[in-house]
């Protein structure tokens, strides 16, 4: 059995229905007869399977449906059609900054965010020092979160997130945070998690990164699955060609 399997996954957004335009507008349009909803398929018939320890790179231009697909894989969204089968604990690091509250202190935020990622209180008590140490935020612990610089915020976010030990790890361009020195440190840490045997999905706009790290690659374009293959270099070459305008779909 594969650890992660997506079968004909399609996700549809509806815009312009009565919840969108409000009740008054809905009735008005209904009377006039020009009420219609627009369907938008963010992903259409995406199929892939991953085995334990594999690493999938998802590539594609903006609006290709990458982030939506990740939300479906992590269980936040339910596919409109098709199904996704996952085994084990999933950790999705979609937007590192989400869930932080500007009014709370750094320490309170760390615990809140840790709780969201599914850590236990004991785990947080034990590793809190380590998190602050890694984020280089000693002396800022009792400051309100909103007073931190944006670099500090993302450093804290990353330091909490990188403690996850999931079976399936989902990364949405979070490999590069902070300034040069911290970026190096964070990349090393991320590789540590990936190498610990987690099945990883990585969305990246950096082709060299995908080539170097991934064992499989999925190319999406406007919701359509162009290709899913383990020939990472071949697909990356094609995609590069598409980006340069040498190849059209």
């Amino acid at each position: 059995m594969s650890i992660l399997e997506a079968n004909n996954v399609s996700i549809r957004y509806i815009t312009g229905d009565f919840k969108d335009i409000g009740l008054k507008e809905f009735v008005m349009r209904k009377i006039k007869g020009d009420y219609h909803v627009t369907e938008f398929w963010a992903d259409k018939n995406v199929t892939f399977t991953l085995e334990r320890g594999e690493m999938l790179g998802i590539i594609g231009s903006n609006g290709a449906g990458k982030s939506t697909l990740l939300k479906a894989v992590s269980g936040i969204m339910v596919p409109t059609e098709g199904w996704i089968h996952r085994e084990g604990k999933v950790a999705a690091l979609l937007e590192l900054g989400s869930g932080f509250d500007g009014d709370l202190t750094v320490k309170e935020n760390a615990f809140l965010r840790g709780a969201m990622l599914g850590y236990t209180r004991k785990f947080m008590d034990d590793t809190y020092e380590q998190i602050i140490d890694f984020a280089e935020l000693e002396g800022f612990e009792d400051r309100p979160f909103k007073q931190l610089s944006s670099g500090m915020k993302s450093r804290l976010a990353f330091s909490i997130a990188c403690l996850v030990r999931p079976d399936i790890l989902i990364l949405d361009e979070v490999l590069s945070v902070g300034d040069g020195a911290f970026r190096k440190k964070s990349e090393t840490k991320m590789r540590e998690i990936i190498n610990s045997g987690a099945t990883t999905i990585l969305v990246s706009h950096s082709l060299p990164q995908v080539r170097e790290m991934c064992t499989k690659v999925l190319w999406l374009h406007r919701g359509q699955q162009i290709v899913f293959s383990d020939d990472v270099d071949g697909v990356c070459d094609q995609y590069q060609g598409f980006l340069d305008g040498r190849l059209t779909l």
């Binding site: 509250d101 009014d103 709370l104 309170e108 615990f111 809140l112 709780a115 969201m116 599914g118 850590y119 236990t120 209180r121 947080m124």
Partner: peptide, 21 residues
Amino acid sequence: KEHQFLFEELVKRDFKKKYKR
């Protein structure tokens, strides 16, 4: 049980925010 920790932290957050300032 799984979400007890998160729940406690959320309660704490709501409490602190309510009477902030």
